[in-house]
């Protein structure tokens, strides 16, 4: 990737640049080039379709990791009328790799929680590249329980490579906190809508990913293991991640077919980073739709359905 442009996008980006130049020329010199521009626009449109509707799983993974892809706080800023970030797990410290707090979305009082990647190197260091420690998950669980107390629906926006594989993270019980999140989230008596917005890496994603509706953005991935680690285990070669990505069935389309997710949230052509506002608008519409559908379900019934949903996931042989 050069300047945020993937190799496979190059022909399109060059064409778009050419169109821009012609438009500029038209404006500045007053020469009418609209016919040429129209022709180029048409081929650009064709190219766009061709490129983005045929992305390989590995290309999707790279889209999900695009450095300019909107982060959790970016989305919150666009989908919530109001949001106040709260801090701390009440045990160890505040983990900046997970953010969360009360918010208003389309007039509804909700709680939004999600891992937070940095938008530049400085912020990435502060936020540990969005890789949470156990205390991050403890904070998430605390906010989720608080949401249940105040009968607020929970929205989780998930973009995390995985729980942080660090020494202190192990010492402070990374696995135990993830287990607790999964266990108790399963029984919260409020509607939960989870959206994989970017990366959905294994237990670190599932820890805040148990819900009544699981949505996935078009270019997100969600898997039991990252393609690189899968390739490392299978072939002792992280360079074969592209191949591993195929086998893992980790794209939104794959997971819809496997009935793991309920809906794919479309992204602007070329990915969410190309038009953040449009991406957020589509995300917001999907969230509201599902919150509405869940609003009138009796809380106990909601939990029963949630448990039953996961209880049926499995594939037995003969």
């Amino acid at each position: 990737m050069v300047n945020g442009v993937f190799e496979w996008e190059k022909p399109l980006v060059e064409l778009e640049q050419r169109i821009n130049e012609l438009q500029k020329f038209t404006r500045e010199k007053g020469i009418d080039l609209s016919e040429d521009i129209q022709t180029l626009e048409k081929s650009a449109e064709r190219l766009r379709k061709e490129i983005y509707s045929n992305l390989t799983p590995w290309q999707r993974v790279q889209m999900a990791r695009h450095p300019k892809r909107p982060t959790t706080l970016d989305y919150i800023a666009d989908i919530a009328e109001e949001f106040l970030e709260l801090h701390g797990d009440r045990t160890v410290r505040d983990d900046p790799a997970i953010v969360g707090g009360p918010a208003v979305v389309d007039g509804r009082l909700v709680t939004i929680i999600g891992p937070q990647k940095g938008r530049d190197t400085r912020e990435n260091i502060k936020r540990n590249f969005g890789l949470p420690h156990p205390e991050g998950y403890r904070k998430a669980l605390r906010l989720m329980r608080q949401a249940e107390k105040f009968k607020r629906p929970i929205i989780t926006l998930i973009d995390v490579v995985g729980a942080y594989p660090g020494i202190e993270a192990e010492q402070r019980g990374q696995g135990v906190m993830i287990a607790e999140c999964i266990r108790y989230m399963s029984f919260l008596e409020v509607p939960i809508v989870c959206v994989i917005t970017g990366e959905g890496g294994s237990g670190g994603a599932l820890a805040i990913g148990v819900g009544d509706r699981i949505l996935m953005m078009e270019n997100a991935w969600y898997s039991v293991i990252s393609p690189e680690m899968c390739a490392q285990i299978l072939w002792k070669d992280t360079g074969k991640a592209a191949e591993a990505a195929e086998h893992l069935h980790l794209t939104a389309k794959d997971l819809l077919e496997l009935k793991i997710i309920d809906e794919i949230v479309p992204e602007p052509t070329g990915g969410a980073h190309r038009n953040k506002q449009a991406a957020a608008a589509m995300l917001k519409a999907a969230i509201i739709k599902h919150l509405d559908e869940l609003a009138d379900i009796d809380p106990a019934e909601l939990v029963e359905r949630r448990i039953a949903r996961y209880r049926t996931i499995g594939y037995l042989g003969h």
């Binding site: 287990a179 999964i182 266990r183 108790y184 399963s186 029984f187 294994s202 237990g203 599932l206 148990v210 969600y222 898997s223 039991v224 293991i225 899968c230 285990i233 299978l234 086998h247 893992l248 069935h249 980790l250 997971l255 496997l258 793991i260 448990i307 996961y310 209880r311 996931i313 499995g314 594939y315």
Partner: peptide, 21 residues
């Protein structure tokens, strides 16, 4: 979790944790 069953294995984490609860 078993890599060979991909996301379906991941979901067994929920299934078992919920059964415990």
């Amino acid at each position: 979790a078993r890599m060979q069953e991909g996301i379906i294995s991941l979901m067994q984490m929920q299934k078992t944790a919920a059964a415990v609860e």
